[in-house]
């Protein structure tokens, strides 16, 4: 397979990229690792006139900011994130999630920002359409959805592994363009629309990622459910964080985020509320799972039925919560 033609620009800083994006308006696209954008271009799903490469641009190292946040550059490769002891100490959930992305080579190439900014996916959409499904679907500017052919909605699913982890870590992202920057909670990055999953305008990019420090007992776990256990996207994923009172038994606050069930990661807020203030026990965890199932309805995707996804959701949430609870450090 080969790439369509484009004009190549190299950028060595996010500021320069923001400048270029605004100069080329909607025709330009940022490429960091290339593992998300280039396959899309080969399939004809993205056809930027200008490709701004930030491959191997200088990357600032992870650091702890003045307010105690872990600050990460979106240009960090997943491999670098996985290998960073600072990340492991301050956000082990992120290290865990990053290690489960794609394959070894994908992690060497792919970046944090690229993973967060990936497009939603669907079996009908992620192919070249040279002789199959030629009539465009909603996501390709048409007016049908092959996957769930009723209504006016695109049912493509956001399948990234990092975003659910960042949701549960209550991360923030700095959005920047040539003219302004803003910092928003990670949830604000996603529109929840399969057709256009990101809030970013064509001129905007992610500038930095902030992960608040935890000042207390915490247990976290990332559970990625896939058939082969590697190489592929999640059937669904769960990122669980349990912040505990000093007694190590009472849950002060909980964050449970589910990935690959909708056009954006989904927080199980009722389940979280239900567990907060309670002792972590078989019973309270089961109750949380029950609540999560009431509030999350997985979109059937990639050949899986909603019945199977619901059952898997139950098992994976339970698994993630149990592991997270087991990891609460008590000393």
């Amino acid at each position: 397979m080969h790439l369509p033609r484009f004009t190549y620009k190299k950028s060595d800083s996010l500021e320069e990229t923001a400048q270029l994006l605004s100069r080329y308006d909607t025709g330009a696209c940022l490429m960091a690792g290339g593992t998300e954008l280039l396959p899309r271009m080969k399939y004809g799903l993205a056809m930027p006139e200008v490709l701004i490469s930030m491959k191997r641009s200088p990357v600032s190292s992870p650091k702890i900011g003045s307010d105690g946040d872990l600050v990460l550059s979106p240009l960090m490769t997943l491999r670098a994130v996985e290998g960073s002891s600072l990340v492991r100490e301050n956000a082990p959930l992120l290290s865990e999630a990053v290690g489960l992305v794609g394959s070894g080579e994908i992690r060497h190439m792919g970046t944090l920002g690229g993973n967060l900014c990936q497009e939603t996916r669907c079996l009908y959409y992620n192919q070249s359409h040279s002789f199959q499904f030629k009539k465009p679907c909603f996501k390709r500017g048409g007016d049908i959805c092959y996957s769930i052919p009723k209504g006016k909605e695109c049912w493509a699913v956001f399948m990234g592994d990092i975003a659910p982890a960042l949701y549960s870590l209550e991360a923030k992202v700095k959005i920047m363009s040539r003219d302004k920057t803003r910092i928003i909670p990670i949830e604000g990055l996603y529109r929840g629309d399969g057709k256009k999953p990101l809030i970013l305008s064509p001129h905007e990019i992610i500038g930095e990622i902030f992960i608040p420090g935890s000042n207390g007992l915490r247990g976290s776990a990332f559970s990625k459910f896939s058939f082969r256990g590697g190489l592929e996207f999640a059937v669904l994923s769960v990122a669980a964080v349990l912040d505990m009172e000093d007694d190590g038994e009472t849950c002060r606050s909980a964050r449970i985020t589910v990935g690959a069930v909708a056009a954006a990661p989904v927080r199980a807020r009722c389940a979280e509320a239900g567990i907060e203030g309670k002792n972590i026990s078989d019973r309270s965890l089961s109750e949380a799972v029950r609540q999560a199932l009431d509030e999350i309805r997985p979109v059937p995707h990639h050949g899986q039925t909603s019945g199977f996804l619901k059952e898997s959701l139950k098992v994976q949430i339970r698994h993630a919560l149990s592991v997270a609870a087991g990891r609460v450090k008590k000393d």
């Binding site: 079996l123 009908y124 992620n126 199959q132 082969r228 190489l231 990639h302 050949g303």
Partner: peptide, 17 residues
Amino acid sequence: RTLNPSWLDYHMPCIHN
């Protein structure tokens, strides 16, 4: 029509299996 015409969506065993 084929819905999963790729190594990604057609699950041939990998080393984990």
